[in-house]
Amino acid sequence: MNPALQALITITVGVGGCVGYFWLSNLVLDRVLFPARGPQAGRNITRANMIRPWLFLFPALVALAVYLAYPVVATAWLSLHRDAGGAREFAGLDNYARMMAEPKFWESMRNNLLWLVVVPALSTAFGLLAAQLTDRIGWGNLAKSLIFMPMAISFVGASVIWKLIYDARPAGQDQIGILNALYLWAGGDAPQQWLQIPFWNSLFLMAVLVWIQAGFAMVILSAALRAIPEETVEAAILDGANPLQIFFRIKVPQIRGTIVVVWTTITITVLKVFDIVLAMTNGQWETQVLANYMYDKFFRAFDVGVGSAAAMVIMALVTPILVWNVRNARREMQ
């Protein structure tokens, strides 16, 4: 069957099915199970109202349970088992031990930690700078739009864009990568293969993510900066504070909460970063990261045990943020 036709049918069946489910289940509840008439009308309405929320929630809960909650448990289970001729056999921490014995794993950990420090810090810093500066000029909104734009570009598309920047031609030819062109123009001796220089190449990969994420940071921080009460800034100006002091001593402390939110959101993105590394270096030249390491184990080495162990490491790194988010959400609910 033609996939486009299949898609159309899926949309119709999916949406129609959802609407039908909600409509029918409500109808059954109100008319058949607990009709709001007769001698027990009052009791029936109360009962129907107790059940209704679960009717509304049911499809979402099933999807969340199957597609997010179950896999966490299943991956944890897989990481503790080994493949024994088709069946799974309990292996204790064997998978983790094998993973820890691999230099590639430690390389991924090191790189991931570097990513975790550099990308959120630079994205937030650039975002804050752009937010503060664009708020003060006439064409600020246009500038914001343009800085925000990379957010719409896929990681793979961004990788192609930046690969052209890092391109290197043999010495003597015209360079087509702008970085090498600038490097030679500034007096560099020979064109460099930027993506093949260990340590620095990781930084060049991070530049791609910073480029994508800075716009996100800017949009959110800009809204927070605008929400700062003007009196605090005016008072500081009257007291003779200079623009830098106003920014760092008055404004930044007041948006600290937002900065933390931006920072953690980007941190989560960083932990999952996969496409950029896969497309640009595929983990060669010491650029491996956890998500790509895991993908390697799952789909190239077909080692489900170690792959699951690596996935659990990513989960463990995310958990502090998860707990912190949940606690914040609960505090707000009260």
Binding site: T75, A291, Y295, A311, I321, A329, M333
Partner: peptide
Amino acid sequence: RALLVAAVVGLLVVPLQLALIPL
């Protein structure tokens, strides 16, 4: 209800990498 909201917030950050093989 509060518990479910908290669960949704928690699931918001679960890396989908975990979901690949089991799913």
